[in-house]
Computed example of a mutant assay.
Amino acid sequence: MAAKTVVVLDYGSGNLRSAQRALERVGADVTVTANADAAIEADGLVVPGVGAFAACMDGLNKVGARAVLDARLAADRPVLGICVGMQVLFDSGIEHGVEAAGLGVLPGRVEALRAPVRPHMGWNTVERAEGSVLFAGMAEDTRFYFVHSYAVHKTDGLITRTTHGEPFVSAVERGTVSATQFHPEKSGDAGAALLENWLRTV
């Protein structure tokens, strides 16, 4: 059987090559590109992201990401957002008192994480949603790698939570849209298992 094709969207941000390598490790045929047609037509689309919400949105707007996502959602084609690539899928994000519009694929607002130590950096467990596909077959104490100072506290769909100072949404599964606040590409075997689970939905 042919490998599933996955595009890692290149909009000037994110751990593009590490995401590419992690997906190739679990058998995907991966292309890193900003080409809208390729991003729409691929079996799966990954939206990575590091840095500031507003800066990532600037890059996404320049490559027409909203139209790409609209087309994929209309065709029921899976999308996976990672870290800030998850955050930009929500309605808006506020950083340093300035609010920026997100892509609006998921309902919710990205806000500062209320915790004594920020960023939340390092390994942490998750309280998975019942019926989760992403975490299927994993032990309850499985750890993933996080690095972030902002988070979503409320949204719709299958919500997986993690606690650092307070509970926050560490993953969400809603229709063909999946997203993780942590970095599966930096999470070793656990991250590979999650990407393999996602690839099965593609």
Results as ranks from 00 to 15, higher is better:
48 P>Q: 06
49 G>N: 10
51 G>P: 11
52 A>Q: 09
52 A>K: 06
53 F>H: 15
54 A>G: 04
54 A>Q: 09
56 C>H: 14
56 C>Y: 03
56 C>V: 12
57 M>V: 12
57 M>S: 13
57 M>Q: 06
57 M>E: 03
58 D>A: 04
58 D>Q: 06
59 G>W: 00
59 G>L: 13
60 L>D: 06
60 L>E: 03
63 V>M: 13
64 G>P: 01
65 A>T: 10
66 R>N: 10
66 R>L: 07
67 A>C: 05
67 A>I: 01
67 A>Q: 07
68 V>A: 00
68 V>Q: 00
69 L>M: 05
69 L>P: 02
70 D>T: 09
70 D>V: 09
71 A>R: 15
71 A>P: 07
72 R>H: 09
72 R>G: 09
73 L>D: 03
75 A>Q: 07
75 A>D: 03
75 A>I: 01
76 D>L: 03
76 D>S: 15
77 R>K: 15
77 R>A: 12
79 V>D: 08
79 V>K: 02
80 L>T: 08
80 L>S: 03
82 I>M: 10
82 I>P: 13
82 I>G: 07
83 C>A: 14
83 C>F: 11
84 V>Y: 08
85 G>L: 06
85 G>C: 11
86 M>D: 11
87 Q>T: 09
87 Q>I: 08
88 V>F: 08
89 L>E: 00
90 F>H: 15
90 F>M: 07
91 D>M: 01
92 S>E: 13
93 G>K: 11
93 G>W: 02
93 G>T: 06
94 I>Y: 00
95 E>L: 12
95 E>D: 01
96 H>C: 04
97 G>K: 10
97 G>W: 15
97 G>P: 14
98 V>E: 14
98 V>D: 12
98 V>N: 15
98 V>G: 11
99 E>G: 00
100 A>G: 06
100 A>Q: 12
100 A>H: 08
100 A>P: 10
102 G>Y: 07
104 G>C: 02
104 G>D: 13
104 G>S: 00
105 V>R: 11
105 V>Y: 05
106 L>T: 09
107 P>W: 05
107 P>R: 00
108 G>D: 05
110 V>Q: 14
110 V>H: 14
110 V>P: 14
110 V>D: 05
111 E>L: 12
112 A>C: 06
114 R>N: 15
117 V>H: 14
119 P>R: 01
120 H>N: 10
121 M>S: 05
121 M>H: 09
122 G>E: 01
122 G>A: 11
123 W>I: 05
124 N>C: 08
126 V>P: 08
127 E>A: 07
127 E>C: 15
128 R>A: 09
129 A>E: 12
130 E>H: 15
130 E>C: 01
131 G>A: 12
133 V>Y: 06
134 L>Y: 11
135 F>E: 03
137 G>A: 01
139 A>L: 04
139 A>F: 01
140 E>L: 10
140 E>P: 04
140 E>R: 15
144 F>W: 08
144 F>P: 00
144 F>G: 00
144 F>S: 01
146 F>P: 00
149 S>Y: 15
150 Y>S: 03
151 A>L: 02
